[in-house]
Design a protein around this nucleic acid. Structure first.
Lengths: 145, 145
DNA sequence: GTGAGTGCAAACGATTTGCACGGTG
DNA sequence: CACCGTGCAAATCGTTTGCACTCAC
């Protein structure tokens, strides 16, 4: 369980990075593994904190660079949570997000209707790369209070 | 044409503000009229610039307060453009947005399918107040280049 | 008259930039 | 061994906060 030894980058992680067209560096592997371990949505700043807790000190700017690279390589996806909060998550199947306006918690919403509305609508003024539905509302926890 | 004289608030603008449950102050009228004149999406910061060009000097913080109030009153709607950019637009019919990842331009997309996908899906973890579809892609202008 | 809204300055958090060093391919 | 990515510090951007003053109601 001490695969966290410095200099040691798990093979599959390194491979995943290279397959994404990225160099397999330690910070990148570290953060990718962190995402795989934790799941969910995390801000660059939150990652710095998580890494610190695990004894890895990475400067903010580097973490920002890493998540940018991982996103560019398609390994991470961006989920904007409003008010300047940029969250990242492991790229999986396309899905939507539910943002609680009270507590700010962001949850995945698995969309049962597979097609994205308007994606091929002629009123769309360009080539669509990605479409995202964001639901804003009040989550059950906050609603009960 | 010089309805811009200080202290003079156009009647219909004042009425619109009061109907929204807001006090009819000059900054609010100024900004609301600006939106009606310009259409489109604007950031709080952009509004400050626009107002300056027209000879109205309003401090940033006030503009932020005004758009917050207008949004609270339902006169403006928020359109998050990612990366911490919060844009405002006159509230009209519900619609989606197309964000060009190259130039950052935000355009309206009039959605022909009126229903919001998944809005009543049981997988949504709370009470939905609002749903927004955002398309990310490359607009025609940038695509041609 | 009273309180909401404004104006101003300064603080704030998230993200970005510039440059020298180090490790990957 | 060339170059991309990292580490570090400082700058920047959009937004928020605190407080005294003013104006709409």
């Amino acid at each position: 369980m001490d695969a966290e030894r410095a200099g040691n980058v798990a093979q599959d992680t390194a491979t995943a990075l290279r397959e994404a067209g990225l160099r397999a560096t330690r910070p990148r592997a570290l953060i990718l593994e962190l995402f795989r371990e934790m799941r969910g949505h995390h801000s660059a700043d939150g990652l710095v904190a998580q890494l610190n807790e695990r004894g890895h000190r990475l400067p903010r700017a580097s973490v920002y660079g890493v998540v940018e690279a991982l996103t560019r390589g398609g390994l991470l996806s961006i989920a904007h949570a409003g008010s300047g909060r940029t969250l990242y998550e492991l790229t999986t199947v396309p899905h939507s997000h539910f943002l609680c306006v009270t507590c700010g918690e962001l949850t995945d919403v698995v969309c049962t209707s597979s097609s994205i509305p308007c994606a091929d609508d002629t009123s769309v003024p360009g080539r669509v790369l990605e479409a995202q539905v964001i639901f804003r509302g009040i989550c059950r926890d906050c609603d009960e209070t």
